[in-house]
Write a protein that binds this DNA or RNA. Structure first.
Lengths: 220, 220
DNA sequence: GGCGCGGAAAGTGTCAACAATACCGGCGAG
DNA sequence: CTCGCCGGTATTGTTGACACTTTCCGCGCC
């Protein structure tokens, strides 16, 4: 009986499996193009194939995996061309969100963003790439939240998720972190100054610059 | 044996169920906020609950329905506020796509778009609202395809899907159709003239104008 | 030696039954 | 009369078993 062997109580819903699978895909534990074996996953999750299949269908609806009839589902393989397209969408939406967030900026929000930038400075100084990466995600998603457009935030989140695979090993060099954070500060300053349109332009360039940095690191 | 009683061979995959459910939601056969009963659906589709559940999970991943643990899934209720947000996204992405499509315009593509505009003129003259609606969707999705950014096309398609419920009963008045198509022609003309940035601005306004028209028709 | 070909193995697609949970009555106490 | 308790019922969550398809490997044939 697996009752005693499982520390956590039997999960109430298959949504936990979705999270676990997203984590495995995002962390690279399962690589793009790989097939998800239902029986194996069921074994490793301590459940039956039913919930696994349902979780897989959720991922399929989100476009993270592509199902092939009678052959199984394969984790989405993001080509470089697709990556470029996704980055363009990210730039577009992020720029939009920055301009909106500038219009809707409050003192509290301004403080929260400034705090994040300061923390990123510290992380860069301490050469803590992982921490910077995490704060960077938070900074961007916070801005999206401040745009008061949940739809935009959702789409942006999906783009970021799919770029995870490519972006993980970035930000190991302090120079890159500093340059990136300089752009963050420029965006925030322009927002505070009420120059939303300019902030938007810088924000778009910021994302495109990130794409360029990633592209160069891929070609090595 | 159901072999002889079923005209179509037993469906190969639950993806047909997904299509059917999307159709039912899009056509208003099941209304927003309504619960999807697995057993009932299974009966009406002539299948078991398993495939139904999987199809429902796909819709859940796409955000068309929201699952509540132990209570079932409910079709997404789009509030007016959310509709505004989605329209903003649509305007943003459509404008972006128009500018890109202008850069990538070829004679063949130009002809295809012009043909659609001409057909919409005919539909408007014949007061065929349904046909105009369909052509209108095609015109927009064609432009998205011509932007050569599949990601943008996908997100745009999702937005349109969720707006379906609101937009269906539009375009019953010839005046609205004509005005809408005038904007289409303006966009295309600017694209052909190589003035992509202006086309983009008009395209954004075109979507926002559609939103405004819809908003007014809702307040009656 | 290369090429189909048949059959076993693996894996997905489907189903019916069981367990667990939430809704909906009525009933009694305060 | 209202509030809380308590069964009955409907519905979701989960499981194991079975059918079907694809894949792969060894074998015989050309």
């Amino acid at each position: 009986m697996p009752v005693a062997t499982r520390p956590r109580p039997p999960r109430q819903l298959s949504s936990h499996i979705v999270e676990e699978l997203k984590r495995r895909i995002g962390s690279g534990a399962v690589k793009p193009g790989e097939r998800l074996n239902e029986a194996t996953l069921a074994g490793s999750m301590g459940t039956s194939r039913g919930p696994i299949r349902e979780a897989i269908r959720v991922l399929s609806g989100m476009g993270l995996v592509t199902p092939v009839p009678n052959r199984g589902v394969f984790v989405r393989k993001v080509t470089v061309a697709e990556m470029m397209e996704i980055y363009e969408m990210r730039a577009l939406i992020f720029g939009f969100a920055v301009e909106r967030a500038a219009e809707l900026l409050t003192p509290a929000r301004r403080k929260a963003l400034a705090a994040l930038v300061a923390q990123m400075d510290e992380a860069a100084k301490a050469q803590r790439g992982g921490r910077y990466y995490e704060l960077n995600l938070r900074f961007h998603s916070t801005l999206l939240a401040y745009s008061n457009n949940r739809r935009a935030a959702r789409v942006y989140g999906e783009c970021v998720n799919e770029l995870h695979l490519f972006r993980r090993p970035q930000f190991n060099y302090p120079a890159k972190m500093r340059r990136s954070n300089t752009e963050h500060r420029a965006i925030l300053d322009l927002m505070v100054a009420g120059r939303g349109a300019e902030a938007r332009r810088i924000a778009e360039e910021h994302v495109r610059a990130g794409r360029q940095r990633l592209l160069e690191s891929l070609e090595e």
